[in-house]
Design a protein around this nucleic acid. Sequence first.
DNA 1: AACTCTCCCAACCGCCCTCCG
DNA 2: TCGGAGGGCGGTTGGGAGAGT
Length: 242
Amino acid sequence: MGRPPCCDSAGIKKGPWTPEEDIILISYIQERGPGNWRSVPTNTGLMRCSKSCRLRWTNYLRPGIRRGNFTPQEEAVIIQLQGLLGNRWAVIASYLPQRTDNDIKNYWNTHLKKKLKQLHASVAAPSPSGPTSNLPLPLPGINHGGAADYASSTDNISRLLEGWMNSCKPRLTTECKRLAGEDGGAAGFERSTDNLSAGFLDGQQAQLPLSLLESWLLEETAAKQVEELMENSPDAWPRPLF
DNA sequence: AACTCTCCCAACCGCCCTCCG
DNA sequence: TCGGAGGGCGGTTGGGAGAGT
């Protein structure tokens, strides 16, 4: 059993935040920085519990949050990472730094689940035209065991990253050179792959490669490359989880 | 115009993890 | 080593908005 809820004391306000409350919270965090949420209600006079303050900040008020429709590239990243990692929304969100875990979770539950079910239904009745561009962005180098193994195996993730990195190494190397300068490119690439692997395997936020990964994933040519690869070696890709 | 239905998303709840005394 | 406290995460819900009748 966990601890009793922190918000059950009398006088704690629930429900939607008002603009006034938002301003108070923002002002406080601008002054003190995020963290020590327990002290926020006390120091600000907000009649909210600490969790509510943290949630409001991380999911709504935090700078850099992107709102509105998800791009096809973002969808592809979510679908692929969900297949790999399961419902670990916080980890998935770390690869889409402009989106919150709550947003991603909501988007998955309201849009992508349905979309993938429909997609799976249509894949069950295959058309002669082959794969379409709406399929999830696939990643190579993974075994085809059961869904649970697939989602939980760090070996698989490691292999996947290895294969993935190898398959796109030329492009990434070029990108690294562009970002880091000619002399630091190769070293930068090696550091990037190490960091990315570590980030995946530890379930923590990857550091350096985020911008790299993002810039690569957001390029439409990437999706095209993947489509070509799928057509050339369709058996090399993991099956969708549902 | 009024009512019902459906969808979406902000927020809550309960549990787990980590830290610290 | 143990237990309490705080932070974090994933699942779920409730209410508002828009669509449909």
